[in-house]
Amino acid sequence: MILEIATLQIRPGQTAAFEAAFAQAQRIVAGMGGYVRHELQRCVEDSHRYALLIWWEALEDHTVGFRGSPEYQEWRALLHHFYDPFPTVEHFVRVAL
């Protein structure tokens, strides 16, 4: 299993709109092949920063399956205009509990 971690910095004054858009967008990612689960967490110290955690069965489920899909274009349209700067996205594999 792979954990995708995206650090999202949301434009000032846009957090409520971002959270509303994410409520729609999460249905898109949840329907993708290889999707396991996800969480969106808001930073305590900076209310405009979020961590998006998505667990995938395999790296390619995210990098090829999701990002190469028509659904990703809908995801982009809903969310990408909220980011400044564009998110850092990394993938992790568990090594210990």
Rank of each mutant, 00 (worst) to 15 (best):
G33T: 06
P12F: 01
L3I: 09
F92W: 14
A30P: 12
P85L: 15
I10T: 04
Y50W: 04
I5W: 02
I28E: 05
A58L: 14
A58H: 15
T88E: 15
P87T: 11
R27H: 12
Y35E: 00
P87D: 10
H81K: 14
A23L: 13
E39R: 10
L79N: 03
T88V: 14
G34H: 05
V89D: 00
E60S: 09
C43N: 10
F18P: 10
E4P: 00
S69E: 02
T7Q: 07
L8M: 11
W56F: 11
F22A: 13
P87E: 07
V36G: 02
A77V: 05
W75C: 06
M32I: 08
I54A: 12
H38V: 01
R67A: 03
T63M: 09
P85E: 14
R11T: 02
Q24F: 06
G33H: 09
P12T: 01
V64W: 07
T88A: 12
A25Y: 10
A17S: 15
R27S: 06
A77W: 04
V44C: 01
E71A: 15
L40V: 03
E90V: 01
A58D: 15
T88L: 13
A21V: 06
F22V: 12
H48V: 00
R67P: 07
G68P: 01
L52I: 04
R94P: 09
Q24C: 09
W56V: 07
R94Y: 06
E74F: 00
H62N: 08
T63W: 03
R11F: 01
I2M: 09
G31H: 02
L59S: 06
F18K: 12
L52F: 08
I54S: 09
Q24S: 14
H48E: 12
W56E: 08
R94K: 15
G65V: 07
E45M: 08
T63F: 04
V29Q: 05
R27F: 08
R42E: 03
H91C: 07
A21N: 10
E74I: 03
P87H: 13
